[in-house]
Simulated scan of single mutants.
Amino acid sequence: MLIGELSRRTGVHTHQLRYYEAQGLLEPGRGSNGYREYPDAAVLTVAQIRRLLEAGLSTQEIGFLLPCATGAAPDLEPCPELLDALRARLRAMDEHIDTLNRSRQTLHDYIEVTERRVSSHPYSPCTVMT
């Protein structure tokens, strides 16, 4: 099938499909006219890529995991390297969430302190540019 048909069947824009190809996640053949030709199995591969992206994985990580993917969910065939990669990604996400939570709390503290100052000193000489 041509890229337009794959796009229609998966709901993924053609530029995204080309990006997946550039990242080595999809490997279309080429017709005699030079057009990309995807096998029917590409529909499942695109579904797997999309689900793995939803999990917060990078295309590089997906390239590593995709050979282990089965089914549309996708299910992953267990192996130590795969679990190590998934656990490392989860740790990185947890660290990022912790950092965001600390930043959120700090911003909340600034707002709270500033609101208290506004109630005690309603007129302030500072000008904030947005």
Rank of each mutant, 00 (worst) to 15 (best):
Leu25His: 00
Gln105Gly: 06
Gly29Val: 03
Glu27Thr: 08
Leu100Asn: 08
Met1Ser: 15
Ala85Trp: 03
Gly56His: 11
Asp109Asn: 13
Asp75Asn: 09
Gly11Glu: 08
Ile111His: 13
Glu27Leu: 08
Tyr20Asp: 01
Ala92Pro: 04
Ala92Tyr: 05
Gln23Arg: 11
Val128Ile: 09
Gln48Ser: 10
Asp40Leu: 02
Ser103Phe: 06
Glu95Trp: 07
Ser124Asn: 05
Pro125Glu: 04
Arg104Phe: 07
Tyr110Cys: 10
Gln60Thr: 13
Thr70Tyr: 07
Phe64Thr: 01
Met1Leu: 14
Gly24Lys: 04
Ser7Gln: 06
Cys126Ser: 11
Leu65Cys: 08
Asp75Met: 10
Arg89Ala: 15
Leu44Glu: 08
Arg18Ser: 12
Thr10Arg: 10
Asp94Ala: 14
Arg117Trp: 10
Gly4Trp: 09
Cys126Val: 11
Pro67Met: 07
Asn33Lys: 02
Pro125Leu: 04
His15Gly: 04
Phe64Val: 01
Thr106Glu: 15
Ile111Trp: 12
Asp94Gly: 11
Gln48Ile: 15
Glu81Asp: 07
Ala72Asn: 04
Val118His: 11
Tyr110Gly: 07
Gly34Phe: 01
Leu2Phe: 13
Cys68Asn: 06
Thr70Val: 13
Gly11Asn: 15
Glu77Ile: 03
Tyr110Ile: 14
Glu37Ala: 07
Tyr38Pro: 03
Met1Asn: 12
Thr45Val: 14
Val118Lys: 11
Leu86Pro: 05
Leu2Val: 13
Arg87Lys: 09
Leu2Pro: 04
Arg116Ala: 14
Leu52Phe: 10
Arg9Gln: 06
Gln48Ala: 15
His108Lys: 11
Glu27Cys: 09
Asp109Pro: 02
Leu52Tyr: 05
Tyr20Lys: 01
Asp75Leu: 12
Asn101Cys: 04
Leu2Glu: 07
Arg104Leu: 07
Ile111Arg: 15
Pro39Leu: 05
Thr114Phe: 09
Glu37Val: 02
Gln48Gly: 06
Arg36Tyr: 03
Thr114Gln: 10
Ser58Asp: 13
His121Arg: 15
Asn33Val: 00
Val128Thr: 09
Ala47Asp: 03
Gln60Asp: 10
Leu26His: 03
Asp94Met: 09
